[in-house]
Nucleic acid binder design. Structure first.
Length: 104
DNA sequence: TGCTTGACTTACG
DNA sequence: CCGTAAGCCAAGC
């Protein structure tokens, strides 16, 4: 099981109108936040990468600023220029399973 | 084998 | 809100 597969599963599990931060995915996978960012380009457009935002709610820095448009198109809760992490943040129950570093 | 870079995070000012 | 600094793990050279 590659890390990319786990990340792809989590990102794909993010419902429309919701978002998750790199740190959230990293925490679920038990890896560093940078690793999530490294596997993201590996996933390409096979997953809703735009639903993955920064810890402060800022959309992905890549794809030129196209992420906010995609998020807005899905009805994501925005607060000014950034996503409202208070409500838009995906429930961890949506994943249900947590890949802890020490066994499952 | 070792250094540099990065779709990151948190903390401080 | 923005800039800087330290910490983090993996890929690239």
């Amino acid at each position: 099981m590659s890390l990319a597969e786990d990340v792809a599963g989590l990102v794909a599990a993010i419902p429309a109108g919701r978002v998750a931060s790199y740190g959230d995915l990293a925490a679920q996978l038990g890896v560093g936040p940078r690793q999530v960012g490294h596997v993201m380009p590996a996933l390409g457009d096979g997953v809703p990468w735009w639903r993955v935002v920064r810890a402060d709610g800022t959309p992905a820095t890549c794809h030129g600023g196209q992420a906010p448009a995609l998020l807005d198109a899905e009805g994501t809760a925005f607060r000014g220029r950034r996503v409202d992490m208070r409500t838009a943040r995906v429930d961890q129950k949506s994943w249900g399973w947590v890949k802890a570093p020490s066994g499952s």
